Deep mutational scan, measured.
Amino acid sequence: MATGGRRGAAAAPLLVAVAALLLGAAGHLYPGEVCPGMDIRNNLTRLHELENCSVIEGHLQILLMFKTRPEDFRDLSFPKLIMITDYLLLFRVYGLESLKDLFPNLTVIRGSRLFFNYALVIFEMVHLKELGLYNLMNITRGSVRIEKNNELCYLATIDWSRILDSVEDNYIVLNKDDNEECGDICPGTAKGKTNCPATVINGQFVERCWTHSHCQKVCPTICKSHGCTAEGLCCHSECLGNCSQPDDPTKCVACRNFYLDGRCVETCPPPYYHFQDWRCVNFSFCQDLHHKCKNSRRQGCHQYVIHNNKCIPECPSGYTMNSSNLLCTPCLGPCPKVCHLLEGEKTIDSVTSAQELRGCTVINGSLIINIRGGNNLAAELEANLGLIEEISGYLKIRRSYALVSLSFFRKLRLIRGETLEIGNYSFYALDNQNLRQLWDWSKHNLTITQGKLFFHYNPKLCLSEIHKMEEVSGTKGRQERNDIALKTNGDQASCENELLKFSYIRTSFDKI
């Protein structure tokens, strides 16, 4: 039985969820670079991206490699990797027998973001014989899940209580170790020597080791999670996991709180800001991140802002960003909400898709409305799209047979046209069989910064309504002859009103 693990408890099935942008060198404390989270699957090609990484700022997932063999891993080693800020997950990587050479110096898994409450997941690794993470000293947050690894031993010899604050939620089941077939031998045991430290858990006094050649490092209890030197002297209180010299914040392997210019500090002093819960960055760093993602459509890219001495992905609820200094300031009234469309555009074809934009005031991208039916549609669209004030790209209304009016965009005031449909149009209306009105132009103002209007096959939309939009939106004169079809717009509506004058002759039985 794995020490510190839980057996036999019912657990939810383990679901495996399925960018080499360097964020800056980590400095003297770390020998390499800070790398983003990685999802490495199918083959070993991307694994080489770990070569210079000291910190993975995010998670590391290595999974679904069915053609790899043990010899493929023999020359692979990433000794610079010290810390993973989120979680480490391995799933069905064939041929991998140990992690001792792959990650010989991995010391800390912070667990800032977890995989279903777990910071370390080893699942269905069919050839893994031992973990071998002999320098792993601290899992700051989260638990361990090690399950269905039929060859995995050296679990009962690990004292997880020396690595985690609590072992109650560890789930370590259905491994070879369960069948008591392992016969784990710690260093020196074969020669009758006791080389590794022994600890007591559940009444068992057991030597602690990761492999037959690597003991588990056990520091004096007084050192807590700070770690200790090879001689057993406690590291500085700002260290986490390990250090090369005692009581020196510049000799830590990793930091308990924050890293700044080669030393570990309790908090980031001005003019620095907390970033990702582990390091200090200056304003320029946060500003660069903001600008890199301002026009990016890459998933996970955030326009970072500053709030409460932190550089964070977005302002919290009730705050909006001051564009001059990136500071989050309290909103006066309802907060603006910028919604970034991942692929640059979004099609609204149902109430469900409209709900995804609920509360958005600025759309960074283009909207395509293609709704053919739905219950209580006008009210639903207004509830979900009615706060949109600005669209950076274009607005396209296409084959939306259920629409009679666009009044559900009740606050839309600006279409920038930074991206144009077919390279020309910022407003595009095609084949809307029941569209009769755009907006009530006596109450609604709309500016279209650039781009043209396109109207074709809107049989109940009168040309007068379209011409009014040209005047109000500032697009009059931009359109070419064929942009607004004269014969297919309003051709099934009563669009022309003329005053009919009647004269009559009164007659009676005795007068003409």
Rank of each mutant, 00 (worst) to 15 (best):
115 F>G: 00
262 G>D: 02
236 H>P: 03
248 D>S: 12
43 N>P: 03
85 T>A: 12
209 C>N: 01
151 E>W: 11
168 E>V: 05
193 K>R: 05
39 D>R: 05
297 R>V: 07
295 N>H: 13
58 G>P: 00
157 T>H: 06
104 P>M: 02
50 L>M: 11
226 H>E: 06
70 P>E: 05
83 M>K: 03
250 T>A: 10
114 L>G: 00
224 K>P: 08
136 L>T: 03
270 P>F: 05
262 G>P: 05
275 F>G: 02
69 R>L: 09
293 C>A: 10
282 N>C: 05
104 P>Y: 01
60 L>I: 10
193 K>I: 06
219 C>Y: 01
180 E>N: 14
141 R>C: 03
126 V>L: 03
332 L>W: 10
285 F>T: 08
77 S>W: 10
264 C>V: 00
90 L>S: 02
78 F>T: 02
314 E>Y: 06
239 C>N: 00
33 E>P: 12
104 P>F: 00
328 C>F: 01
256 R>H: 12
71 E>V: 01
255 C>F: 00
99 L>M: 11
184 D>L: 08
141 R>V: 04
145 R>I: 02
277 D>M: 15
131 L>W: 00
104 P>A: 03
99 L>D: 00
245 Q>V: 13
304 Y>E: 06
334 P>S: 13
157 T>R: 10
223 C>F: 01
186 C>A: 01
83 M>H: 08
287 Q>W: 10
301 C>F: 11
36 P>S: 14
67 K>M: 06
194 T>R: 07
86 D>R: 06
182 C>W: 03
212 H>W: 13
287 Q>R: 08
106 L>Q: 00
318 G>Q: 11
283 F>V: 09
36 P>V: 06
316 P>M: 10
297 R>N: 12
77 S>L: 07
263 R>E: 12
162 R>K: 15
243 C>T: 00
75 D>E: 07
278 W>H: 05
143 S>M: 08
294 K>G: 13
253 V>P: 04
227 G>T: 03
305 V>K: 10
299 Q>V: 08
274 H>T: 15
217 K>E: 08
249 P>M: 04
284 S>G: 05
269 P>A: 12
151 E>C: 07
46 R>I: 09
184 D>I: 05
298 R>A: 04
161 S>W: 05
57 E>F: 04
98 S>Y: 05
97 E>S: 11
40 I>L: 13
206 V>P: 04
135 N>S: 08
311 C>Q: 00
84 I>H: 00
197 P>G: 15
195 N>T: 14
103 F>L: 05
78 F>S: 03
136 L>K: 00
287 Q>G: 14
249 P>Y: 06
222 I>E: 05
86 D>A: 07
224 K>L: 13
117 N>D: 02
85 T>K: 09
158 I>A: 02
115 F>K: 04
36 P>H: 04
34 V>H: 08
232 G>P: 07
289 L>Y: 14
83 M>N: 00
233 L>H: 14
227 G>L: 02
213 S>T: 14
183 G>A: 11
197 P>F: 06
238 E>F: 05
178 D>K: 06
314 E>F: 01
99 L>R: 00
84 I>K: 00
185 I>A: 01
212 H>Y: 14
228 C>F: 01
265 V>H: 04
280 C>V: 00
42 N>Y: 03
297 R>D: 14
227 G>R: 03
117 N>V: 02
132 G>P: 00
194 T>H: 15
208 R>S: 15
332 L>A: 03
35 C>Y: 00
142 G>H: 00
248 D>H: 10
259 Y>S: 04
224 K>Y: 08
236 H>W: 02
248 D>T: 03
330 P>T: 03
154 Y>N: 07
57 E>Y: 11
46 R>M: 10
105 N>V: 11
139 I>V: 09
110 R>N: 05
48 H>V: 13
178 D>V: 09
246 P>F: 13
